[in-house]
Amino acid sequence: MFERIIEEAPRFFTYYNLMFVLGAMWRTLLMTLVGCSIGFTVGLGLAVLRRTSAAWLRPARYAAILYVETFRRIPFLVVLFIVLYFIQPIYSGASLLAIATVAVCLMSTAFLSEIIRAGLESVPRQQMESAEVLNFHPGQTLAWVILPQAWKVILPPAVAFVVMFVKDTSLASQLGVVELTYAGKILVNKGFSPLLGFGAILAAYFILSYPLSRLGAHLETRLGTSRNT
């Protein structure tokens, strides 16, 4: 088998293939980052919503809990299929990349919302009460007191989650999104050895994921020991 690799290598390591893999890498990253950024924003909204106490928001709070608990219990692959078959009949022009990104949003909203909620809860209650009796609006309390203290608890697991999702987006290959995993299949279908094709793809994932996971580990130790946590 090594003969085959050595024989194929010059044909494989070409500028064209490099650009092809880089493009796929970009789409993997795009799905993850766009999906998780939106997921973070909406998740923050849900986490804040769950902390409200107004009676008229009760149905919304229950809906938020239901959403979070539901989507954390469905495989990403199943969510991908549901989103695909939901969106396609309604809006046939949607690109596969966009559809997969919507699925990432749905999942990451649920998971990140839980992470954010734990972070918000780590801030002592008296901090909010101190702000309240100084006549801070709830929004001011959130922006000036709670979030600045909570982000240190939120960030490490949030980064870890994003790292996990870089890998999970490989399932989007199933829809036909030309991200890294699909790119690997294409390379192998073109006749390259699976060892080379999937080997290169594994390396590409590693290049994306490893620095991010190091960053997460670094944040965890840095923020864990820094002052005013």
């Binding site: 002592p124 008296q126 101190s130 009796v133 100084l134 006549n135 000036w144």
Partner: peptide
């Protein structure tokens, strides 16, 4: 709001904004 303009409280612990 009017009340809290005139009245202030200090708790046992975690009073200061840690950030």
């Amino acid at each position: 709001r009017h009340l809290r303009d005139k009245m202030a409280i200090v708790f046992q612990q975690y009073n200061l904004f840690q950030n």
